[in-house]
Amino acid sequence: MTTDTPIVHRKTGALPALITLCLSLGVMSFVTAQKAEAAQPMTSTPVTSETLSTRQQAIPRIAAFMATSDMPKLNTALNQGLNAGLTVSESKEILVQLYAYVGFPRSLNALNELMSVVQARKQRGIHDEPGREPGHAIPTGEALLVAGLANQTRISGGPVKGPVFEFAPVINQFLQTHLFGDIFERDNLDWQSRELATVGALAATPGVESQLRSHMLASMRVGLSSAQLRQVIALLAEHGDEQTAKRANAALTQALAASGKGR
């Protein structure tokens, strides 16, 4: 993984540092695959690091506090993320994506909080890098289904099948056209960042342990190392909730055992 260059407080007139985007991604209960950096083809193999960048460290905290609707802590985490180099576009994309995991109400509330944070920082003379919108048009119709199916297959490591999809085939259609299509085709947030957000949100949500375990595996498939994921757990324990960290630790332990990597 190409590590990001941390960015400190950006005042008006200060020259913003460059942010390196590694295109990767995260998703539902079957995820994983890879996009390397924005300028590189999606099929390139990500380079694994042993530590999270300062920018990456902010993402699971933002996600966890969004999932629990803890607005004071979310406010702090959003400020820390912007200070660490997240662009406004990336911050918005994290909160938009997570509606698929924790619901529209929490997503809308979190986006409103981000809007307030950005406005307050601007009033204090802090210039936050706006970032960019997706670099290509999102396909529609049959082309969207084709793109979503390809993304889903790549991230899950093969065709997604199972009793639940036979029982309710429409849910997989929604996954392929919307989650893996509409959302994952948006290249303004790298796949590793999407997985970090998903892990943070699911760890903070009781009752979704199997999906959390799947996303731990997905995180490693998109290039995050077990050491980085243990760092996520430590961050959640330090800045979040004890039960959130315990769920994340159990899921990673199980994922490592399933992948044959042990501890």
Results as ranks from 00 to 15, higher is better:
155 I>E: 10
196 L>R: 06
178 H>W: 08
205 T>A: 14
229 L>Y: 04
198 T>R: 02
151 N>G: 10
165 F>W: 05
177 T>W: 11
195 E>S: 14
161 K>S: 06
180 F>S: 01
206 P>F: 13
170 V>R: 14
204 A>M: 09
147 A>Y: 07
221 R>Q: 15
153 T>Y: 11
142 E>G: 12
173 Q>Y: 08
220 M>C: 10
212 L>N: 00
223 G>R: 00
178 H>P: 03
189 L>R: 07
162 G>C: 07
173 Q>F: 10
173 Q>W: 09
211 Q>T: 15
156 S>W: 01
175 L>P: 12
186 R>H: 02
157 G>K: 02
232 V>S: 07
164 V>F: 08
224 L>G: 00
222 V>H: 00
178 H>Q: 08
176 Q>K: 11
194 R>N: 00
211 Q>G: 10
188 N>W: 09
153 T>H: 13
186 R>G: 00
184 F>N: 04
202 L>A: 02
187 D>G: 02
149 L>S: 07
223 G>D: 13
222 V>I: 11
233 I>W: 05
169 P>D: 01
141 G>D: 11
190 D>I: 14
142 E>L: 15
168 A>N: 07
184 F>S: 03
143 A>N: 00
143 A>S: 05
198 T>F: 05
224 L>N: 03
187 D>R: 00
219 S>T: 15
156 S>H: 07
146 V>H: 15
198 T>K: 02
175 L>D: 08
170 V>C: 08
205 T>C: 04
141 G>F: 12
230 R>V: 10
213 R>G: 11
230 R>E: 15
159 P>W: 13
187 D>N: 07
228 Q>P: 15
179 L>W: 07
200 G>L: 04
196 L>E: 03
190 D>K: 00
193 S>H: 00
157 G>D: 10
147 A>N: 06
207 G>M: 11
158 G>I: 01
222 V>G: 01
205 T>I: 09
181 G>L: 09
188 N>C: 08
150 A>L: 07
146 V>I: 03
172 N>E: 08
146 V>Y: 11
176 Q>T: 14
228 Q>E: 15
218 A>N: 02
221 R>F: 12
178 H>K: 00
186 R>I: 03
157 G>A: 04
217 L>N: 01
167 F>S: 08
179 L>D: 10
143 A>I: 02
165 F>L: 04
159 P>H: 15
233 I>D: 03
202 L>D: 01
217 L>D: 05
182 D>A: 13
206 P>L: 11
182 D>N: 03
207 G>N: 06
213 R>C: 13
180 F>L: 00
180 F>N: 01
153 T>C: 07
143 A>R: 03
173 Q>L: 12
201 A>N: 06
228 Q>W: 09
232 V>T: 11
199 V>G: 02
167 F>M: 07
202 L>M: 05
234 A>D: 06
220 M>D: 08
228 Q>L: 15
162 G>E: 06
206 P>K: 12
221 R>D: 13
230 R>N: 13
208 V>S: 01
158 G>N: 04
